[in-house]
Amino acid sequence: MPTISMFYGILVLMFFRDNRRHHLPHIHVRYQGQEAAIAIADGAVLDGAIPVKQLKMVLAWIEIHQEELMVDWELAVNGDEPFRIAPLQ
């Protein structure tokens, strides 16, 4: 599960071949022992939870990098290494 970005203590990960459980493009985020799966298309929390402040930052980051995230999703689903994406600044 490669880390594709990291900002403000938030790790953003994308698992290889991870289209079975949630059935749509998504990322996994970790923050201080909490985890959530978040849909790339609309920012819906599919599983888990992180604090609201950090969730808002992740949602802003997704909006900025949505196109790159979809490219990474296709790579990861096919078992290829996704590219790193710039952090939120």
Rank of each mutant, 00 (worst) to 15 (best):
I40K: 12
D42F: 05
R30H: 06
A36S: 10
A37S: 15
E81M: 10
H23Y: 02
P2I: 03
N78C: 07
H28C: 06
H65K: 13
W61N: 01
P25N: 12
H65G: 03
V77L: 12
A44K: 13
Q89R: 11
V29S: 15
L69G: 12
N19E: 11
D47R: 14
L88G: 11
F15C: 09
A76R: 07
A86F: 02
V45Y: 04
A41Y: 05
M57D: 09
I85F: 09
R17D: 06
D42C: 07
Q54A: 09
G43I: 04
L69M: 08
H28A: 13
W61I: 10
I85D: 13
I10W: 04
G79C: 05
A49K: 11
G79K: 06
M70A: 04
G79P: 10
T3R: 13
L13I: 12
H23D: 06
M6F: 13
N19I: 01
H23M: 04
R20M: 10
M14N: 09
V58A: 00
Q32G: 02
L69D: 11
D80Y: 05
I85G: 13
H26P: 05
S5H: 10
I62D: 00
G43T: 05
Y8R: 10
M70G: 03
A37D: 14
R84T: 07
I40T: 12
A39N: 05
A60C: 06
M6N: 14
A44R: 15
R17W: 06
P87G: 13
W61Q: 07
D47W: 14
L75E: 14
V45K: 09
A44I: 01
N19V: 00
A49T: 08
K53N: 08
T3H: 02
P25R: 10
P25M: 08
R21G: 00
A37I: 07
D18P: 06
Q66I: 12
M57A: 04
I62Y: 04
G43M: 04
I4D: 02
L13T: 14
L59G: 01
I10F: 09
Q66L: 02
P25S: 10
I50S: 05
D42V: 02
Q66D: 07
A36Q: 12
E35I: 01
G9M: 04
D47Y: 14
R17S: 13
H26W: 12
E68A: 15
L11T: 13
Q89H: 09
A41T: 00
A60P: 01
N78Y: 00
E35C: 01
T3W: 00
D47K: 14
E63H: 11
D18K: 02
G9V: 03
E67Y: 03
H26M: 08
I38D: 11
K53T: 08
V45R: 04
H26S: 07
V45I: 13
V71H: 15
I85K: 07
R30L: 06
V12I: 15
Q66W: 03
D47M: 04
H28L: 09
M14S: 14
N78R: 13
I64G: 03
G33K: 02
I4P: 08
G33Y: 00
M14C: 11
F15H: 14
R21Q: 09
V45C: 04
D18L: 04
Q54E: 15
A39P: 07
F7M: 09
I27A: 03
V45A: 04
L55W: 06
E81F: 10
M57S: 09
M6V: 12
G9S: 08
H28F: 11
G43S: 05
M57G: 00
Q66R: 15
G9F: 02
L46Q: 06
I85V: 15
F15R: 07
A60Y: 07
